[in-house]
Amino acid sequence: MNKGDELQNLNNKDSAAITKNNQVIKKLVMIVFGMFAFGFALVPLYDVFCDITGLNGKTSTTAAAVYNVDQIDTKRIVTVQFISRTAQGIPWQFEPMVREIKVHPGEMKLVKFYAKNESTRDIIGQAVPSVSPGLAAAYFQKIECFCFTQQPLQANEEVEMALQFYVDPELPEDISTLTLSYTLYDVTGKVES
């Protein structure tokens, strides 16, 4: 083999190696972008997963479409407790006007929450609900809730906010107490931007 052939041979070998490398690189880069996208896809997937399984105590933030209960289960009594807290930085008074009520599954109830903006500026609040035990979240149906919308309160304004709900009669037998917790956040900055 003379020098020229040897070089030619080497070049062929190199370009073959480069194509082989490029094939692998292409696949790996696709995995990289795929996993980056997967990270973002996990965000809606997480919500769907919690929604289906009722894990995490996430309760719907939209109204139950229809009140489709055939009969009220008067034999069972479920205790529903209400708690509220304000996130750091929102100068509102915010609490349930009833701490606890007893309902029959299927029975519609209306309770009220009290909120007062104790500061001297206008603030928009957003209440975020959560149900404990988490598995009961799927059976807690809200017909009307102040958490469906944002609550703008002017300085020193106070308001009574309504929550209309029923507990689905399908609620598992072993759950006799539900706790509905609201956390109130200041979303003024977010709304304005």
Partner: peptide
Amino acid sequence: IAVMPVLAG
């Protein structure tokens, strides 16, 4: 390759 992109996300 599988998890660093998730961290980036």
